[in-house]
């Protein structure tokens, strides 16, 4: 445990030695872990297939971008905007969920997919007549996060170490990740978490246990959305530029692949899935390209295509051969008090 913590703390400096790019890649991977853990609440815990999850990420990103950029000339601090982004995303989640969560699971999948597309279309088109989102050109020069005098846009030296922007974001993201994992673990093993699992296992039996299934599903939906909202805000701050292109259906599918491949419902499995699917494409980029150059003298297969094919096959093969994912969730066991305990 301590070793893992130390390794995680030292990691960015080691990566920075190999190039800042790797720190950035790691940051994006953490963002995807945050997204996957959010989606895991919806898909893994409550068993609701959400195919438009990236729309909530987009909502969070745009809330941040609109309230902290020259676009409207508003520059609110991040500690106001990030929670606001989470709130707005949760609100969108509730708005979408309220009428649709009564539907059967596969219908919900399609409606969420449609919702994801609607959000993207609106982001693309709300550049006129009133310029809200700046359309396909996106929003640029988004403020970096700043805590008091500490700006995440520049490099500071501390204790003889260089803290570049990406490294600062790394630590902020790491802190958020720890918080999100903590929240997830607490939620899973709680009255609400058990109710989610009950809905996932058998909705009718869940109702017969006194669970208001519509409400509990809405809660999962809004909760998952709020995680995506925060992650979206961080994405906007880190990138400094966002456009609707970052929020296409493929991204939703990617996050879903991470959850499914890792192991729906198992927090550690989901993290594993997100890490694998975040880093494998990067490795491909650095191996497939030179290998093809070497063997064929030119690029035959775009690593991007290989990445997508891996996602596709991962989904099909995992479902056929290992439906629980690489690291399936196990039956939760409780440490029981001694048998002599007097029954209430």
């Amino acid at each position: 445990m301590v070793l893992v913590a130390l390794a995680l703390l030292a990691l960015p400096f080691a990566l920075a030695g190999a190039g800042t790019t790797w720190v950035r890649v790691t940051n994006l991977a953490i963002l995807f872990i945050l997204l996957s853990l959010g989606l895991n609440i919806v898909v893994g815990f409550a068993g609701l297939l959400d195919l438009g999850y990236i729309a909530f990420y987009a909502v969070g990103a745009y809330v941040y971008a609109l309230l902290a950029s020259p676009h409207f000339g508003i520059h609110w601090p991040f500690w106001v905007i990030l929670p606001l982004g989470a709130l707005v995303a949760a609100l969108f989640g509730a708005l979408l969920g309220a009428p649709t969560l009564k539907l059967r699971g596969d219908y919900l999948a399609i409606v969420t997919l449609g919702f994801g597309e609607i959000v993207r279309i609106f982001l693309n088109n709300l550049g006129s007549p009133v310029n809200i989102t700046n359309g396909p050109r996106g929003i640029a020069r988004i403020d970096a996060i700043r805590i008091g005098e500490l700006s995440f846009a520049r490099t500071d030296s501390f204790l003889g170490l260089d803290f570049s922007g990406p490294i600062k974001y790394y630590f902020l993201l790491l802190a958020m990740l720890v918080a999100v994992i903590f929240i997830n673990l607490r939620l899973q093993n709680s009255r609400i978490g058990r109710a989610w699992e009950a809905v996932r296992e058998d909705e009718i039996a869940a109702r017969a246990m006194g669970i208001d299934t519509t409400r509990i599903k809405l809660l999962a939906f809004a909760m998952g959305a709020s995680f995506a909202g925060v992650a979206g805000g961080m994405f906007a701050a880190i990138q400094g530029f966002i456009s609707p292109e970052s929020f296409v259906l493929v991204e939703s599918v990617m996050v879903l692949s991470m959850v499914v491949l890792g192991g729906m419902g198992n927090i550690w499995g989901v993290i594993l899935g997100a890490l694998l699917l975040s880093f494998v494409p990067e490795l491909l980029r650095y191996t497939v390209q030179p290998l093809q150059q070497y063997f064929f003298g030119r690029m035959l297969i775009d690593p991007e295509v290989i990445r997508m094919l891996i996602f596709g096959f991962a989904l099909v093969l995992v479902m056929s051969f290992r439906p629980g994912g690489l690291w399936p969730s196990a039956v939760r066991k409780r440490e029981l008090a001694a048998r002599s305990e007097d029954p209430a």
């Binding site: 596969d106 879903l256 094919l309 596709g312 096959f313 989904l315 099909v316 479902m319 056929s320």
Partner: peptide, 11 residues
């Protein structure tokens, strides 16, 4: 099967 179908579509 729904998730599998999404995979097939991407492939």
């Amino acid at each position: 099967p729904l998730i599998s179908a999404i995979g097939v579509s991407i492939i």
